[in-house]
């Protein structure tokens, strides 16, 4: 009866930001990104991509509670970079990877349908 609507899980409420950024007050080059209405799908690929960046000293994500539909990504970088730069870079790189994956799959599909 009082169950929340199912779409609450993936529709960002009005007046809420999809991504908010908060600097760490004590450590330089450390920050947390709160991403609304996302889960392990985005959290885990972001974290793993951040680990590939040598300027990233720490990268982790958490889903604080299964009924709070948000994740928190925490990044700590060297002074050569900044959390924001690392975050943007990782998204760009993942985007590139998926672009490549798409062309690779399409090419393979074309090859496959021609061969058989």
């Amino acid at each position: 009866m009082n169950a929340p609507d199912r779409y609450e899980r993936f529709v960002v409420p009005e007046g809420t930001k999809k991504v908010s950024y908060e600097r760490d007050t004590k450590i330089i080059n450390a920050a947390s990104f709160t991403v609304e209405r996302e889960d392990h799908t985005i959290g885990n690929i972001l974290r793993m991509q951040l680990h590939r960046d040598p300027n990233v000293l720490f990268a982790g994500y958490k889903l604080p509670h299964p009924l709070q539909y948000k994740i928190i990504v925490r990044i700590h970088t060297t002074s050569q970079s900044s959390p924001m730069q690392a975050y943007n870079q990782s998204i760009n790189d993942l985007d590139k990877e998926l672009d490549h994956l798409k062309t690779a799959f399409e090419a393979e599909l074309l090859k496959f349908s021609r061969d058989y």
């Binding site: 990782s90 760009n92 590139k96 490549h100 994956l101 690779a104 799959f105 393979e108 599909l109």
Partner: peptide
């Protein structure tokens, strides 16, 4: 860039 170039084989 730290992007990977995955390969696919159907």
């Amino acid at each position: 860039s730290y992007a990977r170039m995955p390969r696919v084989k159907i």
